[in-house]
Design a protein around this nucleic acid. Structure first.
Lengths: 203, 203
DNA sequence: GTATGATTTGACCAAACGGTCAAACGCACG
DNA sequence: CGTGCGTTTGACCGTTTGGTCAAATCATAC
């Protein structure tokens, strides 16, 4: 490993290639299912060369995961307490749906990790994630109490958004197997909007 | 391996113990993450002894999976075209929710398999599962066309039921991390009923 | 151009893994 | 109570895997 000076161009390029390859392989095979050789091959490097940039398989996994965690929660962070309640929630749903469509590997990486008990990110879930959700739950509850959206359990509302949107990335093969040729994302945005409009419309 | 006579009591007991142990380990670690030794230990057997009952790790996995596939689709099969539309769908949702609560290992086993591309059950998905869904979609569309439930995309309705209910099993650690001490299944049935009543109520 | 540090690699290692096998053990039945 | 078949296991094998290392190669600054 080089000194901790400013990274060279080669370092930048190779580290980026490794992280992308790791995302590809880990999301498709899970942590234990992935091999360092696979990641190295996808990244266009030899195995010892890859291990020159990251000290271990677990270090690569950690790097991919922590790089992702931030951006993954951005759509929820953007929920604006000052905005129109229904439109804010609908916009959040659409943002999450776009992420499932445009970044399915990232979604599946998390899915793999969480289905298997989140051994490596459990801490982040019960601290950062929980704090963020708690914060937004207060906002939603205020909207609900004020009658600006229909009364609804705010935690389960958020869970429903996560599960509905990520389903199209995490269970993509199943969705495709059932839909056949039809594009899984063709009718989905409209379905989501209908669902949440009917669920949340005041009165 | 013994002859293909009627299985002895020892065979029955050990095969059942192996299948249960395999469900435990595969659902928590995935196929590649699980080891034959782990399964043997959980089943209370030695590794060679386990391999006396099943020829390979993959054979165990297949056995667990195919034993499960049938019962897993029972809730959808039970959707009765002659019943009251809204009540039928609500009952289906509750059945699926009960399965997530009572058989989370089974749910996570499928989740693991499908997230990783369903390499071992892809055929069943695009034949048996697809046929069953197609059949029920016709029923739902008829209800919808007759105005007995609100108009809704029937495929996405079914996907939504799958994802919402299985979320509480597959992503249990995340749900628990966010909810803290609160029982994940306490408010869930009511949330589901509210959601689908508002989505599907006619007019 | 050459010295210096960054980068790359072939060869290698120890542990873990799926699976085999012959021998030992145990249980039921005559 | 002994014989035969079902059952169990310790020892073992070949392969895969994560990781190491010394030597070779490359890039760059002087």
């Amino acid at each position: 490993m080089p000194k901790d000076r400013a990274p060279t161009r080669i370092q930048q390029k190779n580290r980026a290639a490794i992280l992308d390859a790791a995302l590809e392989v880990f999301s498709a095979q899970g942590f234990r299912g992935a091999t360092v050789d696979q990641i190295a091959t996808v990244a266009g490097l030899s195995k010892p060369n890859l291990l020159y940039y990251f000290p271990s398989k677990e270090a690569i996994h950690n790097a991919v995961l922590s790089q992702l965690l931030d951006t993954w929660l951005d759509p929820l962070r953007a929920l604006d307490p000052a905005g129109d309640p229904l439109e804010e929630i609908l916009a959040y749903v659409q943002r999450k749906l776009e992420m499932s469509r445009d970044y399915p590997r990232e979604s599946r990486l998390f899915a793999n990790e969480i289905v298997q008990g989140a051994p490596r990110i459990h801490d982040v879930l019960s601290t950062d994630l929980r704090a963020l959700v708690d914060e937004k739950v207060v906002v939603i509850k205020a909207w609900s109490d004020a009658g600006r959206i229909a009364p609804v359990h705010p935690y389960h509302l958020i869970f429903s958004i996560w599960s509905l949107t990520q389903h199209y990335a995490d269970f993509e093969v199943q969705v495709r197997a059932v839909l056949g040729d039809e594009d899984p994302f063709a009718a989905t945005p409209e379905f989501m909007e209908t669902l949440y409009r009917r669920l949340l419309a005041p009165n």
